[in-house]
Design a protein around this nucleic acid. Structure first.
Length: 429
DNA sequence: ACGCGAAGGACCC
DNA sequence: GCCCAGGGTCCTTCGTCT
């Protein structure tokens, strides 16, 4: 079931210099990606953002210079106290499972169109791919890659348009099964969920069969099993494509597991955080623990607390109750649009779409946000909070059009050269 | 000192 | 030949208000 291999593996493979990826010529792939990107507005913006991160790093290193032994000693004591507190509350009694279906959209499309199974295929469009099957991955085609670049890597690539209704239907089938094992399971997306298996295991003592025999078995097999959510998520990334990985519920096992874990593998630590940490000589979670005092002086409280928990292999041992949504939005990307009338009518359209979605859930919100992205990929949001909640297209448009006008006036005499517009609403009652 | 709104980002799928 | 999404959550910073 190689088809179900996960995106992240390839991503890592392309970065990692690991041998044995059949037919994967990393240098060639990177060269093609580079040639397709270089000089584009997108690329220019990426460079700019990278420079901003570098400045952040410079600032951080400067701050680090100011830190004295005294500071560090004090911080170390604080960290030590905190560790004692956290250890006291460490909970190894729960069995949390993270299920992550590999290449979910692609798997559904191949089910419905078996000829695709033998071809390199991806789901998405020329501007963006959501996922790709195994054949396509051999060419370096992966999720979050624009289709036109993927086509250069693999001219025979078949791109299937996304069909969310279909994925939603399959997803709800699978969720029914999840509910049998944990009625309070937490769906994270159409293809991913956390389940608390503790009760089920106490009752049955065996791992479920129906998860295995269901016709989506390959993709709905439990993948990561651990005493908390953070670890379960990391575990689900191990032993791909088919295996599940169970981390024993002992402190020793957890600490050993976390020791060599690259920080980037942890959910919540992305590209930027990784780079910041790398600059401090931190790449694995054990480094994280070793430099905790320093981190507590350079990062916000929430940030270093999170780092500390990660370094100790701690995470939520219970699955939080499902929360209500906090915002709703629609946005669209298009070819450059500068004419005021055109922008206005698009804005109107978006408001209608948003109003429609709001109606489906019977929601009204007080804050309306207009999102704009210009042709240089610079993003702006402009918001206004009303004293009363709104829901209709007219009401939202009344706000959004003013926000848009203000931006146009702001830019004049230059026009707003847009490539994306979006509307968001939040502050529900 | 505190709350809150606004804007920008990081991150996730 | 051109061409890099869309739907969310949470966090941080800053300004103004009370």
């Amino acid at each position: 079931n190689f088809q179900y291999m996960e995106e992240k593996n390839i991503k890592m493979a392309l970065n990692d210099n690991k041998a044995g990826m059949e037919g994967l010529d990393r240098d060639k792939i990177n060269k093609i990606i580079m040639e397709s990107s270089k000089g584009s507005k997108f690329y220019e913006n990426e460079v700019k953002r990278e420079q901003q991160v570098n400045q952040r790093i410079d600032k951080m290193m400067l701050q680090k210079e100011q830190i004295t032994e005294q500071h560090l000693k004090k911080a170390q004591a604080q960290v030590a106290r905190m560790v004692v507190e956290l250890e006291k509350r460490r909970d190894l009694t729960r069995v949390i499972v993270h299920v992550d279906m590999d290449a979910f959209y692609a798997a559904v499309e191949m089910r419905d169109c078996p000829e695709l199974k033998d071809k390199p295929m991806a789901v998405g469009s020329m501007s963006m791919l959501s996922t790709s099957n195994y054949h396509a991955r051999k060419y370096g085609v992966r999720a979050a890659m624009p289709g036109f670049i993927a086509k250069k890597l693999c001219p025979n690539l078949v791109i299937v348009p996304t069909n969310f209704d279909k994925y939603r239907a399959v997803s709800s089938e699978i969720r029914e099964i999840f509910a049998d094992y944990d009625p309070n399971f937490m769906p994270m997306s159409l293809d991913e969920a956390y389940l608390d298996f503790t009760e089920h295991l106490e009752k049955r003592q065996s791992w479920p069969d129906s998860l295995r025999t269901h016709h989506y078995r390959a993709s709905s097999n439990p993948k990561g099993i651990a005493p908390n959510m953070m670890l379960a998520k990391v575990c689900s990334d191990k032993n791909k494509p088919n295996g599940q990985y169970r981390l024993p519920s002992t402190r020793e096992a957890v600490m050993e597991f976390v020791c060599n874990l690259p920080v980037r593998k942890v959910s919540g630590i992305g590209k930027v955080s990784e780079k910041l940490l790398n600059a401090l000589g931190i790449s694995s979670c054990s480094h994280l623990g070793q430099k905790m005092a320093l981190l507590s002086l350079l990062f916000s409280e929430t940030a270093w607390h999170h780092f500390l928990q990660v370094s100790l292999g701690l995470g939520s041992a219970f699955i939080p109750r499902h929360e209500e949504r906090k915002s709703m939005s629609t946005e669209r990307t298009f070819k450059e649009m500068s004419a005021a009338e055109e922008q206005l009518s698009l804005c109107r359209e978006l408001c209608e779409d948003l109003a429609n979605d709001l109606k489906k859930e019977g929601l009204k919100g007080k804050t309306v946000t207009l999102k704009l992205k210009n042709v240089n990929f610079e993003v702006k949001t402009r918001a206004l909070t009303l004293s009363y909640p709104v829901a209709t297209a007219d009401e939202i448009f009344a706000v959004a059009k003013d926000l848009l006008k203000t931006e146009r006036d702001n830019e004049s005499p230059q026009p707003l050269r847009l490539r994306l517009m979006g509307n968001q609403i939040k502050q529900f009652n």
